[in-house]
Design a protein around this nucleic acid. Structure first.
Lengths: 112, 112
DNA sequence: CCAATCGTTCGAGTTTTCTCGCACGATGAT
DNA sequence: ATCATCGTGCGAGAAAACTCGAACGATTGG
């Protein structure tokens, strides 16, 4: 029996409005920032204090909007940014948003 | 008695999450694209078919999030992008989003 | 095999956003 | 002055998003 599988939109199907919406949520924007810094991370590290169902909600939204790639590894769930796909589809977007976040996001850096 | 006045956040107060949220709505994203192409525009041109109160709702949201500058001119209301402020605050963001929109936004070009 | 752990799904409740009709003040033209 | 026009604010209703507890299947370790 295959492990958990996840549906991901193809690179060409990623819609700008959905990406912007995904990034407009502070929790998710913070997740994306962590992913940009740390590469592939265990989903639990994206929100150690969040209820699991809430965490799943946000990671699923990021996945369905084409921002992240999700893969099951044992019981855990590894998340990484779709940097190449996003760069190909919307050149510069991710970098620009992350730069903007770094300079004016939330100055209270509660680093994990 | 002064004409209508509008409150605008200062450039330094513009928050990335709010800007992304403002741009994540298809109607508003389309408005921003028109503004980028046409410069300062009469608000009515941003949504000729929308109810007035709906149009006000979206233009107000764009204004309050720091994306556009609004000024009363007679009975009309002129809108323009805050390109310089946005560029200073979030370098490259607006251009990147508009490029992304142009290449993958909505292919149905209903040009005004 | 059994128990603990993890992510997912479902459902309910809360909050936010969106839409739009209506009344009002301001403006411009007659 | 009068009247039509425009944007705004308000209120209500609908739609969408967020949060989170509980139950379930899958996986790991004893």
């Amino acid at each position: 029996m295959p492990p958990r599988t996840y549906h991901h939109p193809e690179a060409g199907e990623i819609a700008i409005a959905r990406v912007l919406f995904a990034l407009s949520e502070p929790l998710r924007l913070n997740m994306v920032r962590m992913l940009a810094e740390q590469g592939e991370v265990d989903s639990i590290n994206l929100g150690p204090d969040l209820p699991r169902s809430t965490l799943t909600h946000h990671t699923s939204l990021l996945r369905e909007s084409g921002v992240v790639f999700v893969r099951a590894e044992g019981r855990k769930c590894m998340i990484k940014l779709r940097e190449e796909d996003l760069e190909a589809r919307f050149p510069g977007l991710l970098g620009t948003v992350l730069t903007a976040y770094g300079s004016a996001g939330d100055e209270g850096e509660t680093d994990a």
